[in-house]
Design a protein around this nucleic acid. Structure first.
Lengths: 117, 117, 117, 117
DNA sequence: GTGGTCTAGACCACC
DNA sequence: GTGGTCTAGACCACG
């Protein structure tokens, strides 16, 4: 699954797992309607507790990235516009940073100029 | 002091206070060697616990924004390059976002283009 | 058989099948003493497990909608008042909702008024 | 807190708790910005596990009924329009039932007429 | 086999 | 004291 857990990271493990799966979905590594590894197997693979993986999957379902079929498994939601939403989210994050910069008297263009190095 | 605490914010109170003071320093509202309000008075002003303000000041000292003189109070560090450091920090934050975008197949220029709207 | 299974539905598959057959019986699409499709053929048609269809039929028999003849198959119960029972069931469901509304201080008439839009 | 858990109920315990708190909020028993009992104390009172109460509170926060301040407690969200949303939800539930009835050939007015008894 | 729920007990950050 | 996270282990419904 190519997800790595960093125990130094301040984020809880279940969020790191959710973020990892989200990345794999948005980048197309896992395709729509494809089945995810089971809660238990992924927990084994990541050397963590099934409950923790379960919590990650629950969050992913709540956020619309996957859907769950009880007794069958978890599957990737087929929703093409997700990547667009994510893009907008990233743009908003950058805008928030630029706003913070302007509060300190640093102009937008000044930041963007230095972005190439 | 013009610091606002948002109890709905996920960040702990002491970080919000530290961030607020940092902003006031970097934007020049509080000048180098100027004295900060006392822990107790700021705690009163923000209706919070002195321990919490103390923790914020400790973090600010650790990060080099202020220095403490026992029995006298806390003062702003005179370090002109601080604003440059902060600018670099913000640029790094944006770069991290752009890197995340590229992992999802969104090009840097595509993001920057949409940054004007 | 015109039964559709929604894997995103929170209800288990066997309940969705039972509800579908019940609807077909109550609406008269399948008539009294008419034979239902076999467990295996219906399982094929719905791309599901025969055990699941079997469970649905067991529930339908328990609820008095069908009867089973071993070695022959499953048949629709001839019971004309079924539709009346169902109607009462629906009315009770609405009453339960109205009761919940009153607990929140919303009057019965207030709800019924908005039911036309 | 006047919440009762029914172990016969098919709903999980954490949902029953969440539903109970939601009812107390919507009916005005607990007022905006008022503090809820702590996770631990409510767990004791209901003779259940703190984790279970925690899960209920997490769902309530996700649904916008309460907000959490780490190290302080959980508080009722001040959102006046919540009752309106709930009302709409109940109306939709009734409409779904009426739609089901029409599929069986029972008219809307026929149901509403019997609603008075 | 699968996911979902629950318990008991622990540790942490925060106030 | 508070909430948040995690582990270990158990039981259940479902397919």
């Amino acid at each position: 699954m190519l997800i790595r857990i960093d125990y130094q990271d301040s984020r809880p493990i279940y969020e790191q797992i959710a973020a990892g799966v989200e990345r794999l979905i948005l980048s197309g590594v896992i395709e729509p309607d494809e089945q995810l590894p089971s809660v238990r197997s992924l927990a084994m693979e990541l050397s963590t507790n099934p409950n923790t993986v379960q919590k990650a999957f629950a969050q992913l379902e709540r956020d619309g990235f996957i859907y769950t079929v009880k007794g069958r498994g978890n599957f990737v939601q087929k929703n093409i516009s997700l990547i667009e939403n994510k893009k907008q989210e990233l743009i908003d994050a950058i805008k928030a940073i630029l706003k913070e910069a302007e509060e300190l008297g640093i102009s937008k263009s000044e930041i963007l100029k230095d972005l190439e190095s």
